[in-house]
Amino acid sequence: MTEEKHVLSILVDNEPGVLSRIAGLFSGRGYNIESLCVAETIEPHISRLTIVTKGNQPLIEQIMKQLNKLINVIKVHELTGHKFVQREMALIKVSAKPENRAEILRVVDIFRCKVVDVGLEHYTIEVTGDEGKLSAILSLLRPIGIKEIARTGAIALFREPK
C-alpha cells in the first residue's frame, strides 16, 4: 500500500495540554506530523487543528479512531478525498543585492505576493497559496539567495456544495 499525504481537521476543546496529548498520540505510535497548524475558531472555547501526515488508508483510519478516543477531541475529519480548500503562508527573507532587486520584484508580481519588509541587504516576502505555489516560488528564489524561511503549515476547510 502506498503512503500518501492526508489532511486531518480536528476540532478540540481550547484548553491547556490538548495539543500535547494529540502530538503525544502521534509520536508515541511512531507517526510523523508533516505540518500542524492550530488556532481558535469563531467559538473561543474551540480550536481547530489542521494536521498533515503520511500513511496508507488503514493507518489513517487507526489514527482517526485513536484521536476520537481523546477526551478533549470534539470531531475529527479527513479532508483528503473530498473537495476542500487548502492554503499555507510563508515569509521568505531573500538576499536583495542591487543587481537582483528587479528580478525579485518580478517574481513577487508574478506570484501575487508582497514585500513586507525591506532592509539594506534583504527583502522579506509574504506568499500565500497551495503547496505547489510555495514550491514554485522557492525554486525561483533559491538561486538569488534565500536567507530564511518561516512557514505556517497547511490550513484547510471543506468546500461548500454548489
Rank of each mutant, 00 (worst) to 15 (best):
S35D: 14
V12Q: 00
L25W: 02
G17C: 05
Y31R: 01
V18L: 03
L25M: 14
G30C: 13
F26P: 02
S27K: 14
I10C: 05
V7Q: 06
R21H: 04
L8A: 04
L8V: 12
C37E: 15
G24C: 09
C37G: 09
L19S: 06
L25S: 08
R29T: 06
I22N: 01
L19M: 10
Y31K: 01
R29I: 15
G28D: 09
E15V: 15
Y31E: 03
G28E: 05
V7E: 01
L36D: 07
R29H: 04
G30Y: 13
G28A: 08
E34H: 05
D13K: 09
L36Q: 11
A39R: 09
P16Y: 10
V12A: 02
V38D: 07
E34A: 03
A23R: 02
N14S: 09
V7T: 14
R29V: 11
G24W: 01
A23M: 13
I22S: 10
D13T: 15
D13L: 06
S20T: 15
V7G: 02
I10W: 00
V38E: 06
S35A: 02
N14C: 12
S20D: 15
L25T: 09
P16H: 04
I10L: 01
V38P: 11
G28H: 10
G28K: 10
R21W: 03
L25E: 03
L11H: 10
V7H: 05
N32C: 08
I22H: 00
I33C: 07
